[in-house]
Design a binder for these strands. Structure first.
Length: 106
DNA sequence: TTGTTGACTCTGA
DNA sequence: CTCAGAGCCAACA
């Protein structure tokens, strides 16, 4: 609890996301405020994540509670699938109930 | 060094 | 309710 300075906001974002328990989700802006950056920086940080990592990026969605159409392929569908497996439920428009699954950091 | 881009958010119509 | 435009921060060439 003393050596924390040269770490870029990216590293902080990853650390916060790792602290999110399964069955819960968080928005970009929420993480952005924790690291002191904007939502764009958070999204950019997750976009730089490797295919295999210890960061549950799937638990990160936009303010609307919807999965961002990041890029073609199916990662968005994969993200929704992973969330459903973890216990997150979607409404009739691919939206997550942030009031029930919205996670808040201590 | 500057300029461009990006998984966003907000406000207005 | 939905659609569109502008703003913000950080990394890369």
């Amino acid at each position: 609890m003393t050596e924390e300075k040269t770490e870029s906001p990216y590293q902080r974002i990853y650390t916060l996301v790792k602290q999110i328990p399964p069955g819960y989700v968080c928005s970009y802006g929420c993480l952005g405020q924790k690291v002191g950056c904007t939502a764009r920086t958070v999204g950019f940080a997750l976009s730089a994540l490797p295919a295999r990592n210890d960061v549950p990026w799937q638990r990160i969605v936009n303010s609307k509670g919807m999965i961002s159409p990041r890029a073609d392929g199916g990662s968005n569908l994969l993200q929704r699938d992973l969330l459903e497996i973890e216990g997150v439920c979607f409404d009739g428009t691919n939206r997550i109930d942030l009031n029930a699954h919205g996670w808040s950091f201590p």
